Simulated assay, not measured.
Amino acid sequence: MVTNPLDYVEQLEKAGASGNWGELVQRIKLKSMWPGVALKPGTNIEEVYPLLDGEDSVEMVLIMTVDPGFGGQKFMPEMMNKVHALRKKYPSLDIEVDGGLGPSTIDMAASAGANCIVAGSLVFGASDPAHVISLMRKSIENAQGVG
């Protein structure tokens, strides 16, 4: 993820990148990778729908629950509306959330429909990272009715 993607267009073109989303997604999938897209808090959820509809759709959407760039920010609960809207419209989509997640917000994210959690500061700042990861897994499984 970059702040000013236009600054990288020329370099990406030289490296073989395409401006055609469908073609780019196809090429990513041909390499057995999962194409995804990240939405920062100020981006409307409707902007991602064209990337999810059709044959050449991305396979994961990352909803940023903080403004990207700095660890330790406060979780924005209003971003859960985006997660919920995606889950309702695309039931099998991988939906990831990143930013400000902790014990009090993981359940909120999982209940809204997130099935992938990024929790850097929470995990790496914990005295028992394995325990924190276990709690995150349980939260997702409970929200999905697994286990």
Rank of each mutant, 00 (worst) to 15 (best):
A15R: 08
E47P: 03
G36P: 00
M33F: 09
E23P: 01
K31R: 13
D53W: 04
P50C: 08
Q26Y: 06
E59S: 12
K29V: 02
V25N: 00
Y8W: 14
I28M: 11
E47C: 15
A15I: 15
V9C: 14
A15F: 15
S57Y: 11
G36H: 12
K40G: 03
M60P: 01
P5N: 11
D7W: 08
S18M: 07
P35D: 04
I45V: 15
G54N: 07
M60A: 04
P35G: 05
S32F: 06
G42F: 09
G54F: 03
N20Q: 08
L12H: 08
A17T: 11
E59A: 02
Q11T: 11
T3I: 10
P50E: 06
D56F: 10
K29A: 07
E13W: 14
E47I: 15
Y49P: 01
P41D: 04
A17P: 02
E10T: 13
G16L: 08
D56N: 14
S18T: 15
K29L: 07
D56P: 01
L51D: 04
N20K: 10
W21M: 08
A15L: 14
G19S: 10
E47Y: 12
A38N: 10
M33R: 10
M60K: 01
L52A: 06
L24H: 01
A17G: 11
T3R: 14
M33W: 05
